[in-house]
């Protein structure tokens, strides 16, 4: 059997400001994941902002998994994560006055 390989667009072009987190995504079937963050529009200074991968026992309560990605001047950033249980999301805080519109793709394999 070929492995499953699925990409979910967990955030698409909504304006993100302040503290935010992507919607919970259930993916316990997968053994590995990559979050891709493609910046469509940026307002203010976002370079150096970290987005943190979070995991959850129930899809309701969250903790940092330890992996993060750093937004920079490039269009697409990513981070890899493995051994993450049943749910994934990314969370971050943009500085005062800053905002982004992004496509956040979660690629899963298992």
């Amino acid at each position: 059997m070929l492995r499953e390989n699925y990409t979910a667009i967990v955030e698409r072009s909504e304006e993100l400001r302040g503290s935010f987190a992507t919607e919970p995504y259930e993916c316990g079937w997968a053994g590995e994941a990559i979050f891709f963050v493609r910046i469509l529009e940026r307002v203010g200074e976002i370079e150096g902002v970290k987005l943190y991968v979070q995991i959850s026992p129930d899809g309701i309560r969250w903790c940092d998994e330890g992996t993060s990605l750093v937004l920079s001047g490039v269009e697409v950033s990513f981070c890899r994560v493995r051994h993450f249980g049943n749910w994934l999301r990314v969370a971050g805080t943009l500085p005062e006055g800053a905002g982004v519109r992004a496509i956040i793709a979660l690629n899963l394999k298992g």
């Binding site: 699925y6 979910a8 667009i9 967990v10 698409r12 072009s13 909504e14 919607e23 995504y25 259930e26 993916c27 316990g28 079937w29 469509l40 026992p57 129930d58 899809g59 309701i60 309560r61 049943n86």
Partner: peptide, 23 residues
């Protein structure tokens, strides 16, 4: 542009494979 979409269609959320796991 994605902005030309009717706003009600902009965010219909991706489906998931769920194991139906609860707290």
């Amino acid at each position: 542009s994605l902005d030309s979409m009717l706003p009600q269609f902009a965010d219909m959320r991706p489906p998931m494979l769920s194991s139906g796991t609860h707290w």
